[in-house]
Simulated assay, not measured.
Amino acid sequence: MSPESEGTDASQDEAREVLYRLVDRESGAVLIAAEDLLNYFVEEDREPPETVTFVRTHQVGRARRKTGEAELRVVDRQGRTIGVYYLGRVCAAFRHELVASGADRPDLDYSFGHTCEYPRAGDIWRRWAESRPVEHGEWARHPSDWHESWLHVVQTAWFDSGRNATRYGTGGTAVIDGSGFTTRDGFYCALGEAVNGPGGYFGSNRDAVHDCLRTMRRDGAAPFRLVWHDFAASREALGGDFTDSVLSLFEGAGVETELSPE
């Protein structure tokens, strides 16, 4: 193997380890690339941290210490962007000239204007960086307090991949297992998967479901039938007012529903 090919292979191996890139939106320059991120995905009521830490950095852009138009990109193992967060103003909390080079991969801090209030999103992005979900029910294998973060990742990845809020070429019947969730976030995870397949999106709240149904009809997507298994369990967990309001949305959009007690 030639030295040139060895260098290419090494750079590809490094790229497969990168999960986050901090990018200047105006120039497109990568300010920093790293394997992980600390203190960005945090609890909603947590005091915002002073800095966000990029863990094991692979690239440090020396052109700018700060920018007013930054975005954080989540990338998969092939280096493709799978999610984007607009940050606005960011500032390096370190001196570039003191950053070690080579294989040390330092942890470096940046000051962000805000954080992401979905605490499990970082763990889920790491899973999605390996491959998008291809099996039904992966979200349901996580505890219920993960479902809000899973739904956030689904929605972010959905729109950043260029998809619209509509139904795509899936089967004519969408099936929801009402025994698989106990929260409204879990219901929306189940609905998105039922309508658009694993990792699919079909709304993250009632208004968003309405928008998806309206967009589906506008785009001429094929109608579908909704089968809701164990509906009684869903009604008990989510509340009658909520389940009735969701059913009225489907009825208004001409979606046939079948409510199964088991």
Results as ranks from 00 to 15, higher is better:
Y85G: 00
K66R: 13
H142N: 07
E71N: 05
L19T: 00
T115R: 12
S144M: 06
H210S: 14
T115Q: 15
R206M: 12
M216K: 05
G171Q: 11
A103M: 08
I82K: 12
T156P: 06
F112A: 11
G172F: 05
L87W: 00
G199N: 07
D160N: 14
E117M: 06
P198K: 05
F250S: 00
W128S: 02
R46K: 13
A165R: 08
R141S: 09
T51V: 14
D211R: 15
I176C: 04
C116Y: 00
S260R: 14
F181K: 03
A63S: 08
R126C: 03
R120D: 05
W158R: 05
D107P: 04
S2I: 06
R21V: 03
Y188W: 13
A237F: 11
V153G: 10
T8G: 06
R89K: 13
Q78T: 06
A221G: 09
T115N: 13
F242P: 04
F202D: 06
R56H: 09
G180I: 01
A233P: 02
R95V: 06
A221P: 03
R16T: 01
R127S: 03
L22S: 02
R217L: 11
S101V: 08
A190D: 05
Y168P: 00
G197N: 08
V30P: 04
V175P: 02
R120H: 15
A222T: 05
L22V: 01
R77A: 10
V255M: 10
P133V: 01
E130N: 04
L37H: 08
F250H: 09
G199I: 04
R217E: 05
G220N: 09
V195C: 07
I32G: 03
S11E: 15
T8D: 13
H147A: 06
G61A: 05
T115K: 05
F159P: 14
D13C: 09
D185V: 02
V227A: 02
V90L: 07
T53C: 10
G102H: 10
D123E: 14
E135M: 10
G199H: 07
G79W: 15
I32P: 01
P261E: 13
D76P: 10
D13E: 14
G254C: 09
T51L: 08
A63Q: 12
G199Y: 12
S234P: 07
I32V: 14
W158Q: 04
G137S: 06
L247M: 12
R21M: 11
D230P: 00
P261G: 05
V195E: 06
V99N: 05
V55F: 15
F94L: 03
